[in-house]
């Protein structure tokens, strides 16, 4: 708006020169950019519009939807717990210690991020399935993963934990070593240094990693449907329920899709907020 006004005024004062100096409205980029923006946002708006209709609440409270939300909530929370427990040490070791082959390992651990989820499912099946590599020993130990919520968790852990690993590693690397050293000089042991210095200082990174991991785990589909199957109230997560409902009663699929859009939006806001706090001024 203001741009247009300035241009008009200047044009009346110095018609010939301003025409040369002023940048022209970039029509082509504007047009292409507009098309792309619409392309990215329109489907999301349509999902929201269709999902948040009059019978949103009654559909939300239906068993199909509630079961899916419950399964997703419990499996993703378990995934997050396991991620913190097992991935934090990996991130810490990679950030703090050098060893032969570290660069290779570091790269390899990012593989699940770029791997198609369905390939992850095949891998899990061939490893932990009944006829898989670890199937017979697991069976001997009385552990049966096939079609269990544990299989859902494994699929989520495999595909999403690397997101936490990446940010946690960056977090540990950003912690000032001198602060840790000072605490150690004051007599704190390794665990206490980690608990009271390293962990709190790296926490915003860890939190961002956890939120990204959670979002990825919540959206997991390919590996889950292949490795864990799909049964309402047991292994049918939100995404699996959407897929299943699409083929019969559209309403639960729309409501769950709208819920996912809202959750995704919240995740983005949260991560954005964290980043702003970490780097004030940006």
């Amino acid at each position: 708006m203001s741009w247009g006004l300035t241009r008009k005024r200047e044009a009346s004062l110095e018609p010939a020169r301003s025409a040369v100096r002023r940048p022209r409205l970039p029509v082509m980029p504007l047009l292409l950019g507009g098309v792309m923006t619409l392309f990215l946002l329109l489907p999301i708006l349509v999902v929201l519009g269709r999902g948040l209709s009059a019978d949103f609440l009654s559909t939300l409270l239906s068993p199909v939807v509630m079961d899916a939300l419950r399964v997703s909530l419990w499996t993703t929370l378990t995934t997050l717990g396991l991620t913190v427990l097992f991935v934090t040490p990996v991130a810490y070791l990679l950030a703090r210690f050098d060893f032969p082959g570290k660069a290779v390992l570091d790269t390899l651990l990012d593989l699940p991020i770029v791997l198609p989820p369905v390939v992850a499912g095949v891998g899990l099946l061939l490893t932990f399935g009944r006829n898989g590599l670890l199937g017979p020993p697991l069976e001997l130990a009385g552990i049966s993963l096939a079609f269990s919520p544990a299989a859902v968790v494994l699929a989520q852990l495999f595909t999403s934990a690397p997101f936490y690993l990446r940010t946690a590693k960056a977090g540990f690397m950003a912690v000032d070593r001198e602060v840790e050293q000072a605490a150690r000089t004051d007599g704190a042991d390794g665990l206490r240094v980690f608990r009271f210095i390293t962990w709190p200082l790296a926490f915003p990174f860890l939190l961002e990693g956890l939120v990204l991991t959670w979002a990825r785990a919540l959206g997991e589909f390919g590996a889950t449907i292949l490795f864990a199957g799909s049964l309402q109230g047991r292994t049918r997560t939100i995404t699996l329920a959407i897929y299943s409902a699409l083929e019969s009663d559209l309403a639960p699929a729309l409501v769950l899709s709208a819920v996912m859009v809202l959750l995704a939006f919240a995740v983005l806001l949260f991560v954005r907020g964290l980043a702003m706090r970490r780097r004030p001024g940006l």
């Binding site: 199957g229 799909s230 049964l231 083929e247």
Partner: peptide
């Protein structure tokens, strides 16, 4: 029933893989 699959070939696959 441990899984309800989206088509019959997926049902058969679960037995072929030995999972079911």
């Amino acid at each position: 029933v441990v899984s309800e699959e989206p088509n019959v070939r997926q049902v058969a696959l679960k037995v072929q893989l030995g999972e079911a």
